[in-house]
Design a protein around this nucleic acid. Structure first.
Lengths: 229, 229
DNA sequence: CGGGTTCTTGACTATCTTCAACGAAAGTGG
DNA sequence: CCACTTTCGTTGAAGATAGTCAAGAACCCG
């Protein structure tokens, strides 16, 4: 999952399971904390997330970290380069994964439809990452956090009463390393949105979006203090 | 071209023309300033840059801009998502391009080798973008500029006398929008490196690297003031 | 040569980070 | 199940990095 420009979201994140008549390999189940692969591992499988949440990370020698992406249902993870993984991948929320042989992406696979779908997933990945560039390079902390919440709400938000609710299974430091901020800034920005009554923080890992339009506005860089609707 | 982690550079940027025995379509030649495609255009062709330099950009409504990538020889540009281009692409330096039908990537192409090479290019693209994330999200302005110069020197630097020289055909604002900085910061940072005698600025578009090791050090976040070697 | 763009530099400001402290939550072992 | 320990999250104050605004210099192109 990347932080994409809202208007594009519908167009480019189908987030659906592959349509596939061919018999599948068995689903993989992984518990929170388990590692799916490490940087440097040889790639044998790609995985489409069926349920749960994954975290893809990359480290700098001095300890600085970038969360490359979160893997939400519909996302495909594990694209290789030079046959190797270039991130670590571990499990944030118990997950089920549909594995596909790497050969299936690379064409040595009988099932043309799966090949096609893996390829399209790779291309969506490129496009999503391009949007994410814009976010990392050009957005302020409020815009980043607002964008992040908007994307999550769209993809995995639940409607509870009149509001939509979204779960943040990751730590604040994961959000920070994903958006290019510090944990303190993430925390402060969430507090700020709460004080503006744009969101409510039900518990640390559960956000309720009170004013979706205001949140969307902030994600696009509108005036920082929209009056209560 | 993305700003990748130095140690990986060799492994992941072959930057070579595709090996291809099959007859090619005619090369495309484009002059500086010409547009190859626009955001929203339908994708019919992918292009491998043979010579020259391209610029891929993406705009936010309010005018903020991100330079997604520069297209240097060896790079493949034009990967679609949902059949459409998601960036603008124009020419910074007169370029020659080798076009490949999109069908060739998507498998509807007789030449399996070209299909394979386009696919590998797409996967390299993903990996390169992941490194670039780390750079955008976690590096300081000095590290960004130093990294940028290191990558360019590696890929297109020329040895002149005892030093290597690299051409920067793009404007300072392009560098800024590529690295997530402002033109002023780019300018100041280059001046700083010049005053430290790590680089010399021959003319605005030509940089000479005087102390490659120091530059590499800065790109990795070493102490900011290495003494002259 | 002249006009417009691009680049550099300076002064000032804002945003975000850093450092530090504290409280809340979660994990551990008896 | 509870006390203990550790990790995580929030908040404050201070500081630093990069941004903004503004002016002038250098460059480019007809």
């Amino acid at each position: 999952m990347y932080v994409t420009i809202p208007s594009d979201t519908a167009a480019q994140a189908p987030a659906t399971a592959f349509v596939n008549a061919a018999p599948k390999s068995a689903e993989t189940r992984l518990k929170t904390g388990a590692y799916l692969y490490f940087e440097g591992d040889e790639v044998e499988w790609l995985y489409q997330v069926t349920s749960g949440v994954l975290r893809l990370t990359r480290l700098l020698e001095d300890g600085r970290r970038q969360v490359i992406a979160f893997g939400y249902p519909g996302d495909v993870v594990g694209f290789p380069s030079g046959g190797l993984h270039h991130t670590d991948c571990d499990v944030l929320v118990d997950a089920t994964l549909q594995p596909y042989r790497l050969a299936c992406l690379e064409g040595g696979c009988a099932d043309a439809q799966t090949h096609q779908q893996l390829l399209q997933a790779a291309l969506r990945e490129i496009s999503g990452m391009q949007d994410h560039f814009l976010m990392l390079g050009r957005k302020t902390s409020v815009e980043k956090i607002a964008s992040f919440l908007c994307v999550l709400t769209d993809r995995v938000g639940k409607t509870v009463g009149n509001y939509s609710q979204v779960n943040l299974p990751m730590k604040r430091s994961d959000i920070a390393d994903f958006l290019g901020l510090t944990t303190e800034t993430v925390s402060r920005t969430l507090t700020q949105l709460r004080k503006q009554k744009i969101i409510a923080i039900d518990n640390i890992h559960t956000i309720i979006v009170l004013r979706p339009t205001a949140l969307l506005g902030l994600s696009l860089g509108d005036a920082k203090d929209c009056p209560p609707t």
